[in-house]
């Protein structure tokens, strides 16, 4: 294989793995949007907080990885439950913009509080994985990326099954469709809101660990939310499949752009490629690739 093709294959395979890790964060947006119709701009900050807790319990207090993850999980579930109960539930029935503004406010608050409580230095999350890359035919990948991608695929599959096949998942989609009618069907709407926020907390933890391991844990991790936003819009705000496909497209395009354009323009293409893609897709399908179109009977 020529060096040129080798380079391309490498870019694509790495982009592929990164893309799946994007999908894992993106699914957090989708979970909230699917059940409450609001966009949670604090999802990146959730990831940051979860990762900070894992990293600081490990480095400061010397907990083993599994215990640190457990503590973080319990914290995130409780934290999101409280958030839903005391901040977001009172806003049910308000314009969606108000809820979105509230999440932006929360995001900024967390970004400030995180370092205040746990310190601002960058901490590692060390997973028991070797640094040596895996070489498999023409593919050349780091083990950490493979693990991240595997976790992503597993959870995306579980969430996909949950929404499409399980009764609770169907109820959750019903809640997203209409709160009032769902109530009239005997669905406890508030409980499903709480469930959605707890799931978002779980996903944030997974995303935080995977990404914290890849790039280190500090406030920069919160940028993940913004970074992943094009993925969500690209795939459609309410589609799990959209998350996966959107993540893959963004991951691969980003890697290719960085590989070929960066040497010419001097870097930075990785950061704006997702947004260019997002705008292109929005021009053709305003609700994203897999989003639900507005049904209008004539």
């Amino acid at each position: 294989m020529s060096g040129e093709t080798q380079f391309f294959v490498e870019l694509v395979s790495n982009g592929f793995l990164t893309g799946l890790m994007y999908s894992l964060v993106a699914v957090g947006f989708v979970l909230i949007y699917k059940s409450t119709d609001a966009i949670n701009f604090a999802q990146g900050e959730f990831c940051m907080i979860a990762a900070i807790i894992v990293a600081s319990t490990m480095t400061l207090y010397g907990f083993p990885l599994w215990a640190a993850v457990g503590i973080s999980l319990i914290f995130m579930l409780g934290f999101n439950l409280g958030l839903e109960r005391f901040v977001l539930r009172p806003m049910i029935g308000r314009p969606v913009v108000a809820i979105i503004m509230a999440t932006i406010g929360l995001a900024l608050m967390f970004r400030g509080l995180g370092p205040l409580v746990f310190g601002a230095e960058t901490r590692p999350i060390n997973l028991p994985i070797e640094q040596a890359p895996v070489i498999w035919g023409p593919f050349f990948m780091s083990q950490i990326d493979i693990l991240g991608a595997a976790i992503s695929v597993l959870f995306l599959a579980v969430f996909g099954w949950f929404f499409l096949k399980s009764r609770k998942g169907v109820a959750m989609r019903a809640v997203a469709d209409s709160h009032q009618v769902s109530m009239a069907m005997g669905i406890n709407v508030e409980r499903y809101f709480a469930l959605a926020w707890m799931l978002a907390g779980l996903v944030a933890l997974l995303g935080g660990i995977v990404w914290g391991n890849a790039i280190g844990v500090d406030t920069q991790l919160a940028q993940l939310g913004l970074k992943v936003f094009p993925v969500v819009i690209l795939g459609g705000l309410d589609s799990i499949i959209g998350c996966i496909v959107g993540g893959l497209i963004v991951g691969v395009c980003e890697a290719i752009a960085a590989g070929y354009l960066d040497p010419i323009v001097g870097g930075g293409t990785k950061d704006f490629t997702p947004y260019v893609l997002m705008i292109l897709v929005l021009m053709i399908r305003p609700y994203g690739m897999f989003g639900k179109p507005i049904i209008e009977r004539i």
């Binding site: 009764r167 169907v170 989609r173 019903a174 209409s178 009032q180 009618v181 009239a184 069907m185 669905i187």
Partner: peptide
């Protein structure tokens, strides 16, 4: 006691069968 709304109000983005599943939530 269950109410059927004026103007049908089906869950538009769910299939007919999923609508029934949601109806049998309890």
């Amino acid at each position: 006691i269950v109410q059927v709304f004026e103007g049908r109000r089906v869950f538009e983005h769910l299939t007919a069968e999923e609508n029934l599943i949601a109806g049998g939530h309890i």
